[in-house]
Design a protein around this nucleic acid. Sequence first.
DNA 1: GCAGACTTACCGACGTGTCAGTGATTTGAT
DNA 2: ATCAAATCACTGACACGTCGGTAAGTCTGC
Lengths: 225, 225
Amino acid sequence: MAAKSTADRGAATAAADRVVKPQAKTTERREAVLRAAMSVFGERGYNKGSLVEVAERAGMTHAGVLHHFGSKEALLVAMLQYRDGEEAAGVPGRAQTEGPAFLGHLLDTVAENTTRPGVVQTYTVLSAESVTEGHPAQHYFRQRFSILRTKLAGVLAEVSGRDADDPEVRDDASALIALMDGLQVQWLLDPDDVDMPRIVEKIMDQLVDRLATRSVAPPFPRPQD
Amino acid sequence: MAAKSTADRGAATAAADRVVKPQAKTTERREAVLRAAMSVFGERGYNKGSLVEVAERAGMTHAGVLHHFGSKEALLVAMLQYRDGEEAAGVPGRAQTEGPAFLGHLLDTVAENTTRPGVVQTYTVLSAESVTEGHPAQHYFRQRFSILRTKLAGVLAEVSGRDADDPEVRDDASALIALMDGLQVQWLLDPDDVDMPRIVEKIMDQLVDRLATRSVAPPFPRPQD
DNA sequence: GCAGACTTACCGACGTGTCAGTGATTTGAT
DNA sequence: ATCAAATCACTGACACGTCGGTAAGTCTGC
């Protein structure tokens, strides 16, 4: 019968070609809107950024943007998810960096961010803005921080021969994330006065070093090689 | 311009007594507006916070607020300065804590902030928002960070017997400030998962310790044993 | 009676979201 | 392959609310 929305489509073609459901260039246009949203919300924040400006940068009217995403809130959420996907895809290696290499990946990201103030600003402004009442990105950032803390704690534990549930390890994970985020604000305001990569690397080394050398009660014998 | 507003007044009359200048309750009312602004801008951010809501909480109309402060921007700036004054006055000791005691003061502040999420939110949201183009609080925060970095570097140098111009000392000052700011975002989003005072104290100790024990030697990967 | 502290009334600019309509494209039956 | 119907990707106009700011008048304490 009649398919209601674009979501209701299935088993039309057997072959696994890629352009079956949407209208050929639709994905392209949606991505243009998403990228426009990143730049606008990054420059002005979610509250001050307007759909009209997003639409202009994407080359359509604001009604067109609403046609694709339904509401400003939904656009923000879609943008956040899109950004995650892009980042994962952008890494030359596999989707997710695992183990100790993750620390190096973090350092690389900090260094790379130095060349992309726009991206840094998007993240900084939005994450802070999200703590206000009823902000649509609140759930996203709460979850993101939670996952990041857990992952970092795991890596830190692995590297230092500790337990990932050790409060000290978790504290250090929180601290490292906080350090990176906090530095971004200072750096955006005063790029010449704050050397993000150098600072993060130094503190990270120091944290790992202390975690490894000062094992309070090693649950297992851990030779330092 | 007919009835010019009283917006710009800088305590510029001769006698320092109280019977000449403001109209008795005026100072009181202005402070009420300033406090209302802190709560509104803290909850919603500067962009989303409205003069109407500030006015309501101060018990007047938004035109009344404009009468006192001239513009929304001017209100924000006045609020920021008022907050600084309040904080300085709130410390039981003198206006400014000097020397090594400053580190303890910082720790006390972090602990105290744990009981005042509103204040923390105001600072967090506004400081991040200020990095956007043309934000009225940009100058305030740039200056604030600059002064804080310098002061902290001085104290750190004093405590560890280093030079305040030492890049390592300045890096650590930036790092400590970044840590505190970054933790606030995580804490606001997840108060139970982030123990701000404990984390800051631990990192601070660690920083001071390393600064003091490791003089002016270039850092080797594994000097400690 | 006058300056200052307001209020009421209002303006123009914007911002989000709705709606009907219009071509372009895809679909499905022939 | 052809063609009509369905669906899509939009646009333009508008409804409706909100916001910062202005103008002018009123009330109050000195």
